[in-house]
């Protein structure tokens, strides 16, 4: 068999976190996000041996994750499951030196368009144009939705040291 991209394990190690961030931002910090992560990597593993050598693996994975998460969102819509069934946000932040996970609850409370722009564009790195095609919007609107979402997060996370520095 002709190999092109190398052992799949490296792919999971390298991009597992990015894919989880995309799934969590799109779906919330819950079991759905974990299922989307698993389905993304399982589907990638299936196609792995036939992927061309010059594949941008990260972009390819984010696209699979985008499709999986978007499918789940559509299914949720049909089932009319509320998306705001998340635990209430606690004000206390990061006092034990542990990762501050509040941000995921805040992302989940963003309007859907901002949430998806943050997931696919800001965290997943997909271009505005491609993100726009998925969420049925214009590239300019995606750029704005992503920036507005991050601005809201920054405002609400200002007590957390990890959000102190402007990053652009």
């Amino acid at each position: 068999m002709m190999n092109t991209l190398g052992p799949f394990e490296h792919c999971v190690q390298q991009y597992g976190a990015t894919v989880l961030r995309v799934c969590r931002a799109a779906l919330g910090p819950n079991a759905d996000a974990e299922d989307a992560w698993s389905e993304t990597f399982l589907s990638a593993l299936r196609s792995w041996p036939t992927m061309p050598e010059d594949t941008n693996v990260e972009a390819w994975l984010v696209r699979i994750a985008k499709n999986k998460t978007f499918d789940i969102i559509r299914t949720r819509g049909r089932r009319a499951i509320p998306t705001d069934r998340l635990p209430e946000l606690s004000a206390g932040l990061d006092d034990a030196g542990l990762p501050d996970l509040t941000v995921w609850q805040l992302v989940a409370q963003l309007p859907e368009r901002q949430r998806l722009a943050v997931a696919y564009h800001y965290l997943g790195g997909l271009p505005h144009t491609e993100t726009a095609a998925v969420i049925g919007s214009t590239p300019e609107a995606v750029r704005r939705a992503s920036a507005d979402g991050i601005k809201t997060l920054r405002r609400r996370m200002k007590r957390s040291t990890s959000w102190e520095q402007p990053d652009e």
Binding site: A17, L20, Y122, G125, L126, P127, E168
Partner: peptide, 23 residues
Amino acid sequence: MSNQTSPRPAAVDIQFPIEPGVL
């Protein structure tokens, strides 16, 4: 369609943390 991802802010890893053990 572009095959590239756009560069992301370096702070993403700490701003959107993943708790130990999950991965």
